[in-house]
């Protein structure tokens, strides 16, 4: 009896529900990706091997992919392979896709994490500054910056920043993750971490210098959007009764602003970060291409341009899982900020 109650409690738990839903969605996503790889192209075997491949080779490959079986059987075998970490072999380089992905993934992780740091810091500072003094000079600057951030695509930012900061002003390197001649032994694959582990400060600084422009191009749009949302919510909340109530008790302004107004205002800002995370992961494909960044996205773009089906599927799958994890994390963060979320329904 008590066990049943406990079970019921677990099932009703907010985090449990959220995670189950994500797992179900991920399964759906696997069907979608499978459909992209096997259904859309018409004949995947012919697509993979190119128009000039002899018919008997294509036929053998078709048998290998089990293309002659019913579609759900194909999906079953494909999924079993995915669960065993088998993403197949690149149709162009004949290298193992899973190995390749592990090789390139850390560079993208490092780029995204660094972007997130810049994004959160920038959005927070700009949002608070403009929300504290609406219509001030800084607020107007943020407003213009926000329109620029929305209207200028990340890949245009990338080109502009590369041109200005790297080519003209020569402040920062324009390509790659490390300068020539600097080498770091690969442990985690994250250059900043590996260089610190090796005690190589020069490499660490060089790694950071290479990260700045790509991260900035990815972050600017998100910073602009989040700063505007934070500002709007601060201005709205500062006039709410729950703030005026605290004013009526003579609580110092700084405490009211930074404790009682900031926390509820951050909730919509953090919520929108799911969408910004999506745009970061998407734009990373272009930014890594522009900066010749040896990451998963550039690997993915190369695969896409060569119609390397197995590699495309692998990359999309990994990004799908990563994005799902990121959204769960963001929702956790929101539920920490907003206790009401957990108690709904």
């Amino acid at each position: 009896m008590r066990l049943r109650k406990l079970l019921q409690k677990v099932v009703d738990n907010f985090y449990f529900k959220r995670t189950t839903y994500s797992i179900v969605t991920l399964f759906g996503l696997s069907i979608l990706i499978f459909a992209i790889a096997r259904v859309l192209p018409g004949d995947p075997a012919r697509l993979a091997l190119g128009p000039r491949a002899p018919e008997d080779v294509v036929e053998r490959y078709r048998a290998l992919l089990r293309l002659n079986e019913p579609i759900y059987i194909q999906y079953y075998y494909w999924l079993v392979d995915v669960f065993h970490g088998k993403l197949g072999v690149s149709l162009v380089t004949f290298r193992d896709v899973a190995t390749d992905i592990l090789e390139f993934l850390p560079a993208t992780i490092e780029l995204i994490i660094f972007t997130l740091i810049i994004d959160v810091a920038g959005a927070f500072i700009l949002g608070v500054l403009s929300g504290r003094k609406p219509n001030s000079l800084i607020d107007n600057f943020v407003r213009i910056f926000a329109y620029a951030g929305i209207a200028i695509p990340a890949f245009v930012w990338a080109i502009i920043l590369q041109l200005v900061l790297a080519n003209w002003l020569d402040l920062l390197p324009a390509y790659g993750r490390l300068s020539l001649g600097i080498e770091v032994k690969r442990i985690t694959g994250l250059i900043t971490v590996d260089s610190l582990l090796a005690g190589n400060i020069n490499a660490f600084i060089d790694g950071i210098r290479h990260l700045i422009i790509p991260s900035l191009s990815l972050a600017i749009g998100c910073i602009a959007q989040e700063a505007r949302i934070l500002r709007a919510n601060l201005i709205e909340n500062i006039n709410k009764d729950y703030i005026l109530n605290l004013y009526s008790h003579g609580i110092p302004q700084s405490i009211i602003f930074f404790k009682y107004a900031l926390k509820p205002s951050m909730i919509p800002t953090v919520t929108v970060m799911t969408l910004d995370m999506a745009s970061m992961l998407g734009n990373a494909f272009l930014v890594e291409l522009i900066f010749n960044w040896p990451g998963l996205s550039r690997y993915g773009i190369t695969a896409m341009l060569r119609k390397d089906l197995n590699a495309i599927v692998g990359v999309v799958l990994v990004i799908g899982i990563a994005y799902t994890l990121a959204s769960i994390l963001i929702e956790l963060l929101v539920s920490v900020l907003d206790p009401r979320v957990k108690h709904k329904r």
């Binding site: 709410k240 009764d241 729950y242 703030i243 005026l244 109530n245 605290l246 009682y260 926390k263 509820p264 909730i267 900020l337 907003d338 206790p339 009401r340």
Partner: peptide, 8 residues
């Protein structure tokens, strides 16, 4: 309801 901060 409106005069008490909902997230504290």
């Amino acid at each position: 309801m409106a005069a008490l901060n909902p997230v504290f």
